[in-house]
Amino acid sequence: MTNVNSRVKKHREGLRMAGLRPVQIWVPDTRRPSFTEECRRQSRLVSQADKGDADMQQFMAEALADVDGWTE
């Protein structure tokens, strides 16, 4: 086994002993040509849904007011 493989194996064994286990997460491929348009499509849907929700508008306004001063 190569040095790198040995270190990776040791690291993973340590994580397992700490009670963790590996998982595989599939995420959208941001390099695909259709990715940008799909983001726009979903954003439009969310925006349209939020416009009709007065509670959401109030929540967002309060959340926005709460971030004042976070960055300097």
Rank of each mutant, 00 (worst) to 15 (best):
Arg41Lys: 14
Trp26Asp: 12
Gly14Pro: 01
Lys51Tyr: 02
Asp68Ile: 08
Phe59Lys: 09
Thr71Ile: 15
Thr71Leu: 15
Asn5Tyr: 03
Glu13Trp: 02
Arg44Glu: 14
Asp66Leu: 11
Glu62His: 06
Met1Pro: 04
Leu15Gly: 04
His11Gly: 02
Ser6His: 06
Ser47Lys: 11
Lys10Met: 04
Ala63Asp: 04
Met56Ala: 11
Gln58Ala: 14
Asp55Pro: 00
Asp50Cys: 05
Arg41Val: 04
Leu20Met: 15
Leu15Ala: 10
Glu62Gln: 15
Lys51Trp: 01
Gly14Asp: 10
His11Thr: 10
Arg16Leu: 05
Ala49Trp: 10
Leu64Lys: 14
Val4Met: 11
Arg16Cys: 03
Gln24Trp: 11
Leu45His: 07
Ala63Cys: 06
Val23Met: 12
Arg31Ser: 15
Ser47Trp: 05
Ala18Met: 15
Pro28Trp: 03
Ala18Thr: 00
Pro28Gln: 08
Ala63Lys: 09
Arg21Asp: 05
Glu13His: 01
Leu45Met: 13
Thr30Cys: 08
Val67Phe: 05
Val8Arg: 08
Gly14Val: 04
Phe59Val: 03
Trp70Asp: 15
Asp50Ile: 13
Arg16Phe: 01
Val4Ile: 15
Trp26Cys: 06
Leu64Ala: 15
Lys51Thr: 05
Met60Ile: 11
Ala54Lys: 10
Asp55Phe: 00
Glu37Gly: 02
Ala49Ile: 08
Glu62Val: 08
Val23Trp: 01
Pro22Gln: 13
Gln58His: 07
Ala61His: 06
Trp70Asn: 12
Leu20Asp: 00
Lys10Ser: 10
Gln58Thr: 13
Pro28Lys: 09
Asp50Trp: 05
Arg31Thr: 15
Ser6Pro: 02
Ala54Met: 09
Leu45Gln: 14
Trp70Pro: 00
Met1Asp: 09
Val8Glu: 02
Ala54Arg: 10
Glu62Leu: 14
Asn5Ser: 14
Arg7Cys: 00
Glu13Lys: 12
Glu13Arg: 09
Ala63Met: 12
Asp50His: 06
Glu13Leu: 13
Asn3Met: 07
Arg40Tyr: 06
Asp53Cys: 13
Gly69Phe: 09
Gly52Met: 00
Gln58Ser: 10
Asp55Ile: 01
Trp70Thr: 14
Thr2Pro: 04
Val27Asp: 07
Arg40Phe: 06
Cys39Asn: 12
Ser43Pro: 00
Phe35Met: 08
Gln57Cys: 06
Thr36Asp: 09
Arg41Leu: 13
Val67Ala: 03
Arg40Gln: 11
Glu37Leu: 08
